[in-house]
Amino acid sequence: MGSQFVDLNADGHLDYLSATFDGSPHASWGGADGFAEPARIEDAAGERLLVSYYWDYDEDAHLTTGRSMPDGKPRNLRGISAVAMDWDGDGDLDLLQGSYEKGHLYLQLNEGSPSEPRFTGKNVRVMAGGVPLEDEAKMTAPRLVDWDADGDLDLVYGTFGGADGGAGIYLLVNQGKGGATSFAAPRTLLRVHGESLPTSPTGPAEGLYPEVIDWDKDGDLDLIVGGYSRWRAEAPTLNDEETAELARLRAAHEAAEAAADEVSKAFNKKFNAEEAKAKTEEEKEAAFNRVYGEFVDRLDATRKACRELQQKIDVFDPPTKRTPAVWFFERA
């Protein structure tokens, strides 16, 4: 989820706009005392805003719909971020939704007023440099900032990471005139690529969520970036005895995993047989509880054995780690 603090309903209080992997923008309406419980933003017809792919809470399933798509066709595109800006210079805030898949941006115009937004329910694909914006590395979230200090809002977005393992942060300069928005082709603000694993976290390598701010107050814009680092602690040099011990631990771990698999298979076999006899959901639940109770000690013991052996292996052969953090990138 990205975050934007913006006065969505022109009541003089900043609201908290975000979107999540449920596929829709949400607003936590701000007031004099703070922020209220978030609610999904609806269009003029009372439908939740979305791109196409979304989590349906009633159906308890992921679904797709083409009702808001430019061509009316459903696509596997999930809106996971949202920002509001006056796209067309008519004085009210329109909404941009970013899709996880393919890294598209979609505009939904506000045909209401600043204080009573009425979103059209129809998405318009956002262009950058005259072509539809697309990023195979998947968009994390867009941010709005006047990067070039020309009085209008430019857009910065991050990516999760592409097939090559690299991720980036990109700038779309707003070249529009007379209050209208028109983005230029993306410019690269930052590319990160974990080519080899460092021995400690040295920076984000994937899932880059940017904030753009003059953090050090030196007059230029810096980046604050949330993301994951990939790293691996330095492996010790092993003597012959330790090398033999590592081999023994690996063999023991393999055997422990096989034992855990056997217990797990036996549990599934017995539960499936008991579940087949059950006629109601209550009987199925009772069957699960009965069989699980019978196996739980063995399941726990075998898992614990695997875990403990892995911890010992990790001392000799440190694993690759992937850890989240937030980083400050000072403008050079």
Binding site: A128, L133, E134, A137, P186, T188, R191, T202, E330, A332
Partner: peptide, 18 residues
């Protein structure tokens, strides 16, 4: 590897992350 339409050669540099 940049997104569609990228000018490509205008990387804006930042110092090493902290």
């Amino acid at each position: 590897l940049a997104p569609s339409g990228d000018a490509g050669d205008d990387l804006i540099l930042f110092k090493a992350p902290v």
